[in-house]
Amino acid sequence: MARRSSIQGDFKLRGLLRRIGNEMESDLRPAMVEAANLVLATQQRLIPRDTGDIEQGLEAFVSKSGLDAQIGIRGKKDNRHFFYGRFLEYGTKQYVRGDHTVAARPAHPWLRPSYDMNRDQIATIISRAIEATLRRAAEGA
């Protein structure tokens, strides 16, 4: 249920960033952490609340390389415990159970909108980090 995010693009750029990350301190991971926390805060603000339990299951994880991030409900245990999050996100349809009808529940999206609302800011944060890292690598520092 976690929103998975990663830097996509030219394989040469990704390879270069990985090598730089191994050889020197990269600005990419702190930038990705900042971007992930921005999306996480928006998710926590947008998520529909009944008991507020599902908000406690949200977390942001950034890989050591800084090239991958997962934001939302992570792990088997949390996915099982907060399974109803997908019903909040996508809604349900009306169905018949026994001799009565269970009404449809409307969708209340919060995963995708949390990313969409911050897309421009995330791109700016990551672009600056890539530029700074590449500039430092070019200077040989």
Rank of each mutant, 00 (worst) to 15 (best):
Phe83Ser: 13
Asn22Glu: 14
Arg135Ala: 09
Arg97Gly: 03
Leu38His: 03
Val39Thr: 12
Ser63Asp: 06
Ala41Ser: 13
Thr42His: 01
Lys76Ser: 09
Phe82Asn: 05
Asp53Trp: 15
Gly72Asn: 10
Phe61Pro: 00
Arg74Ala: 01
Gly85Gln: 03
Lys76Trp: 04
Pro30Met: 07
Arg74Ile: 05
Ala60Cys: 00
His108Pro: 08
Asp50Met: 08
Val39Ser: 05
Leu40Asp: 03
Arg74His: 02
Val39Asp: 03
Leu13Trp: 02
Leu16Lys: 07
Glu139His: 12
Pro113Cys: 08
Met32Trp: 04
Tyr84Pro: 03
Met117Ile: 15
Asn37Leu: 06
Asp53Val: 14
Gly57Val: 01
Arg4Trp: 08
Met32His: 11
Ala2Pro: 13
Gln121Phe: 07
Gly85Leu: 02
Ser114Cys: 08
Ala132Thr: 06
Leu13Thr: 14
Glu139Ala: 15
Leu28Arg: 06
His100Asn: 05
Asp10Trp: 06
Arg45Met: 00
Lys93Met: 05
Ala2Phe: 11
Val102Phe: 01
Arg128Ile: 08
Lys77Ile: 04
Thr101Leu: 09
Ile20Cys: 04
Arg128Pro: 07
Ala138Trp: 04
Asp53Ala: 15
Asn79Cys: 00
Leu88Gln: 08
Ser26Gln: 02
His108Asn: 12
Tyr84Cys: 09
Ser63Leu: 01
Tyr90Trp: 12
Gln70Gly: 13
Arg112Phe: 12
Ala123Lys: 10
Gln94Leu: 07
Gly91Pro: 02
Lys76Val: 12
Ile126Ser: 05
Leu58Thr: 02
Glu23Leu: 13
Asp27Lys: 13
Arg14Ser: 09
Leu58Tyr: 07
Asp27Phe: 08
Arg18Glu: 09
Pro30Ala: 04
Tyr84Ser: 00
Trp110Asn: 00
Gln94Trp: 01
Gly15Thr: 10
Arg45Ser: 07
Ile73Gly: 03
Asn79Trp: 08
Leu16Val: 01
Glu89Gly: 15
Asp10Phe: 10
Leu13Ile: 00
Phe83Asn: 10
Phe11Ile: 03
Ser26Cys: 02
Ala129Gln: 03
Arg80Phe: 06
Leu46Gln: 04
Val33Ser: 04
Pro30Thr: 05
Gly85Ser: 12
Leu111Thr: 13
Ser26Ile: 12
Gly52His: 00
Glu55Cys: 03
Asp10Asn: 14
Ala123Glu: 10
Ile73Ser: 10
Leu40Cys: 08
Leu58Gln: 05
Arg119Pro: 09
Glu34Gln: 15
Leu40Phe: 09
Gln94Phe: 08
Ala141Leu: 15
Tyr115Gly: 10
Asp27Ala: 14
Ala104Tyr: 03
Arg18Thr: 14
Gly66Pro: 12
Pro113Glu: 00
Glu23Arg: 15
Gly75Cys: 05
Thr133Phe: 03
Ala69Phe: 05
Phe83His: 11
Asp10His: 11
Ala129Gly: 03
Phe11Lys: 07
Glu34Ser: 15
Ala69Cys: 07
Gly75Glu: 05
Asp120Leu: 01
Ser65Arg: 06
Ala69His: 11
Tyr115Lys: 12
Gly98Thr: 09
Met117Thr: 15
Ile126Val: 07
Ala123Gln: 09
Gly91Val: 13
Asp53Ile: 15
Asp50Gln: 07
Ile47Phe: 00
Gly72Asp: 05
Met117Phe: 11
